[in-house]
Amino acid sequence: MSTGRRTLTWPLFLSTALPDILAEANVDQARIAAVVRDVEQRATDYAGGGKSERRLLRAPFLDDVASFDPEEAPIGSRADVAVVVRNSELERFHSMGSVGDDEIATITYLATGALNQWLRENADRSEHKPLHGVFAGVSEFPRACAALTAMALAAEVGGRKAIGRDRNQVPAPLARDPHVDRVSQGEEDTFQLVATVRCGLDPIDSDLERALSRVAGGDADLLFTSSLSRYSRNSVHLAQALEFVLSNGGSVLTSNFLVRPREVFSRRAPLIGSNSAEPLSNLSTDRLSGLHARHVRDLLRQHGMQV
């Protein structure tokens, strides 16, 4: 069997390449079948959304895939794979250590060309079509959706992208989250580093909830995380986290983006790959505009790093 990126079709990836790699990692057949079903369903649900909806779904993962192979593939195509394949039930086996980083890299590499070709042939061509299936819940968080759309558009050209043309186009904030009242107040600072070490598909846990809630309590103006995927690889949970932060007036800084309640800033291409293990290690002001660059400089200085 040829598994070259140019010759591997999406059906062949699902029936042969993905199961073979998981079997070599000693994943049992029942669980392999569950992963394949989940990936196949995610592809169908993803393809069923409109162009704009697919764009916002892949936006949170642009930081992750900026350094992924194949380098010659458009970053949007690599982000498609993150949404459909990387963020599937495959994540559970990766978080448990059954499937290592090398296997993940091989799986996402092989999936890129196959999924890209399948989407060209099967994805809905409407500009707007409601999300459904596993992604349907994302639309319950309109502020997050508006921000993610702006994030995707900003990434295409770099610099600033406003969220809506005027105040009325920006979704109203959610009511104050009742969990905030239970959050203990920590040391005050401007930046709060946020990372996750759990399975990326799990609901938001108490530690992350406390970190996110600091913006509502006035203890943090800006949260930093290497990528929004550190909040969750579940698109609905991720949108919920982002909605909470933005609706309470907070902002999120990632490796390439600054997401604020009414505007988003992006690094001009090429984006830099995020590093979840050492999130500050490759952060720089290269190709950033004024406010975005200032926040990055402040964060690096606060942590004693060279600017």
Rank of each mutant, 00 (worst) to 15 (best):
L228F: 05
A195N: 11
E209Q: 13
V180A: 14
S184G: 11
P171M: 02
C199L: 02
G217D: 10
F191I: 06
S232P: 01
S226W: 07
N168A: 14
D181F: 12
D202I: 03
Q169D: 15
S206C: 06
F224D: 08
G250C: 07
R260E: 15
F224T: 07
L174C: 08
L228V: 00
L246D: 02
D205T: 02
D207K: 09
F265K: 05
R262Q: 14
E187D: 12
G249L: 04
F265M: 09
P261I: 05
S213M: 07
P261S: 08
V245W: 01
R260Q: 15
L242T: 04
A195L: 11
P178W: 01
L201K: 01
V245S: 05
A239P: 01
D202A: 12
L238V: 01
V236P: 01
P178D: 00
R214F: 04
N234V: 02
D207V: 13
D205P: 05
L174D: 13
G186M: 06
A175D: 13
Y231G: 06
S247W: 04
E187H: 13
S251Y: 05
V170Q: 12
Q192E: 14
S247I: 03
L222Y: 08
D177R: 08
R230C: 14
R260K: 15
D189V: 02
A239C: 05
V180C: 10
F224M: 07
R260A: 15
A211Y: 05
L212R: 03
V180T: 11
R167E: 15
P171S: 04
N168P: 00
L246Y: 02
T196Y: 07
L212N: 03
S251G: 13
V215R: 03
G249E: 03
S213N: 14
V245H: 00
D221Q: 14
D189C: 10
A241H: 04
L208D: 09
D219W: 11
D181M: 11
L246K: 02
V252Q: 01
A175E: 13
F257S: 07
S235A: 15
V264G: 08
D202V: 02
P203D: 03
L238Q: 12
S226P: 13
E243D: 10
R210A: 15
S229F: 04
L242M: 07
D207M: 11
R198N: 10
Y231N: 09
E187S: 12
E209H: 12
D205E: 06
S247C: 10
Q240I: 03
S255D: 11
G249R: 04
V259F: 08
Q185H: 11
R198K: 12
Q192S: 12
F244V: 00
Q185M: 10
Y231S: 09
Q185W: 09
V259P: 01
L258P: 00
H179C: 06
L222R: 14
S213G: 14
R214W: 05
L258H: 09
L212C: 02
D219P: 00
L253Q: 04
S227Y: 03
